[in-house]
């Protein structure tokens, strides 16, 4: 799973803060059996993530999530299918939690399970009415909905810098909202077109999203 980039893993071990949680979540998503993840931190309440129903429980609101939690330990345990744990607590949909963890876990570095140069496309939209997001992030997600792109190409088409595009790919990947291309794939024609005229790339990214930009200007939104 961490085949390429193994040296980076050694330099920045995945045992720190949200990075370790994100890595555990990503691994656990691949498992076929229902699992419960418990995250204990020295400065936060326990966090439970139930993968069987796609929900989490945390006493703390996500707006109060620390960027760097202290002393994080992650526990996982199999749970019984069809018998969700702790039915008396107010579970919430998992997307907003994963979006936020994905934002903090790797910053603008590539997530440890992603390989450089891989192309990704959107496979489901995150529930954006429940998730704090920027105008730039909507633009990037909509772009991924129409083709397989690397972080560099995603930035090129949307006017974002590559690290920012990488962070969005990290967040979407942690949520299971993007899929990697199955094998080598040529870039979409639009990428070559924009690459051919690099001096116009920024202007192209704006004009390509004219309707959207004018709507955001009118209705508000970051």
């Amino acid at each position: 799973m961490f085949a390429s980039g193994a040296s980076e893993v050694r330099e920045r071990p995945d045992t720190v803060g949200w990075r370790s949680v994100a890595t555990a979540i990503h691994s656990m998503r691949q498992l076929p059996m229902p699992m419960l993840l418990t995250v204990v931190s020295s400065d936060c309440e326990p966090l439970w993530v139930d993968f069987s129903t796609g929900r989490y429980y945390w006493e703390r609101p996500l707006t109060a999530m620390p960027e760097q939690p202290g002393g994080v330990t992650v526990y996982s345990q199999p749970i019984e299918a069809g018998n969700p744990p702790y039915p008396w607590v107010a579970w919430r949909a998992m997307d907003p939690l994963l979006w936020q963890i994905g934002r903090y876990a790797f910053g603008t570095d590539r997530a440890t399970w992603m390989r450089p140069g891989d192309r990704y496309a959107l496979q489901r939209w995150p529930n954006l009415t429940e998730i704090p997001h920027s105008t730039e992030e909507i633009r990037m997600i909509a772009t991924l909905a129409n083709g397989y792109l690397t972080a560099q190409e995603l930035g090129l088409l949307t006017g974002a810098d590559e690290p920012t595009a990488q962070r969005v790919l990290n967040m979407l990947s942690l949520m299971g909202a993007v899929k990697p291309a199955g094998g080598p794939l040529a870039p979409p024609a639009v990428v070559a077109k924009v690459q051919a005229e690099p001096q116009q790339a920024a202007a192209a990214s704006t004009s390509n999203f004219g309707f959207f930009s004018r709507l955001r200007d009118k209705m508000g939104g970051r």
């Binding site: 939209w125 529930n127 954006l128 009415t129 429940e130 105008t135 909507i138 633009r139 997600i141 909509a142 772009t143 909905a145 129409n146 088409l157 639009v190 390509n208 999203f209 004219g210 309707f211 959207f212 709507l215 955001r216 209705m219 508000g220 939104g221």
Partner: peptide, 27 residues
């Protein structure tokens, strides 16, 4: 998306996504 049809903010998100999709597809 989940939406409260009384919430202008949530509807603006929906409309924005629709516009971004139209633009992206055209691109």
């Amino acid at each position: 998306f989940t939406v409260d049809p009384r919430s202008r903010d949530q509807l603006v998100v929906m409309l924005s996504v629709l516009a971004a999709n139209v633009d992206s597809r055209a691109m």
